[in-house]
């Protein structure tokens, strides 16, 4: 596709216009009675719903609770995925040892582990964090593994020539910096993946936004459901922004 270079303000204007059009279409679907208004909330009433949720003192604790298992799940999942991926990609015997195990475990969807999460951790932050961590683990494991495999072998030759050929020297001076871009993109995918599994993980009853959504849906308060959906969207954008700031700092050497 041929792309013209538009002024940034023009781009922003188009983006906002798209949002307005989307909301108007949404409103029209309800206003013209194309669907049952009971199952499609009026977008114009959402600010009011948000205010009510906020004042009910349920919103912030739910967000806070979600963040607790989000951060633990993401952190532990990413850390263990990176470590195992790194070990598998750099230690051949370990790689052979883990190859079938990872092939067996990999296809199991994170949500299938909800059952064991409840059995092992009861209904707790740990249980939800565990389910989140599993999804994040695989994303980071594969990102790290393939990043190590894609390192230009000529860098290792350089390391040997300049006295940095030992395992640790080489890992610190070549492997880790070389995989940083791949590693970070794995973490970014994990950030998104964690938000997605989080809501489902909370359906097992751990307090959080997912549980609030479930509770609201139970009483037909679909407008409240949408408020939580939008809250997730905003928080995802915030974590992604935080990621981009860190990436810019860590990968400042890239053109």
């Amino acid at each position: 596709m041929l792309t013209r270079s538009y002024h940034p303000l023009t781009r922003i204007a188009y983006g906002l216009a798209g949002v307005v059009l989307f909301v108007l279409l949404w409103k029209a679907v309800g206003a013209f009675g194309w669907v049952n208004p009971g199952i499609l909330p009026d977008p114009f009433l959402l600010p009011e719903t948000f205010l009510l949720e906020w004042q009910s003192d349920r919103f912030l604790p739910a967000v806070g609770s979600s963040l607790v298992h989000y951060v633990w799940g993401l952190g532990l999942g990413a850390l263990s995925g990176i470590l195992v991926g790194l070990a598998a990609a750099t230690l051949q015997r370990f790689d052979m040892l883990q190859s079938y195990v990872s092939r067996i475990l990999r296809p199991i969807p994170p949500l299938a582990w909800v059952i064991f999460a409840i059995a092992w951790f009861k209904v707790s932050h740990a249980g939800a964090a565990f389910v989140i961590a599993i999804g994040v683990f695989w994303v980071n494991y594969f990102a790290t593994y393939s990043a190590v495999r894609n390192i230009d072998p000529r860098f290792y030759e350089l390391a040997r020539s300049f006295g940095q050929g030992g395992y640790w020297r080489r890992s610190v001076s070549i492997t880790l910096p070389a995989i940083a871009p791949g590693l970070l993109s794995g973490i970014r995918t994990g950030i998104g993946q964690a938000w997605m599994t989080m809501i489902a993980a909370e359906l097992l009853g751990v307090p959080g936004m997912g549980q609030e959504m479930n509770a609201a849906a139970g009483v037909g308060a679909y407008d409240a459901v949408v408020v939580y959906m939008l809250a997730i969207s905003v928080m995802y954008a915030a974590t992604d922004l935080l990621y981009l700031l860190i990436e810019r700092k860590v990968l400042s050497w890239r053109p």
Binding site: R154, F155, L158, G163, W253
Partner: peptide
């Protein structure tokens, strides 16, 4: 010490840091 056909600089190191690479284990 070797000078390669491709310069083989480490892209994540500045010029200074690249030059120091062989010194770090001396």
């Amino acid at each position: 010490a070797i000078v390669f056909q491709d310069s083989r600089l480490l892209p994540w190191r500045t010029v200074d840091e690249n030059i120091a690479y062989g010194l770090e284990t001396l």
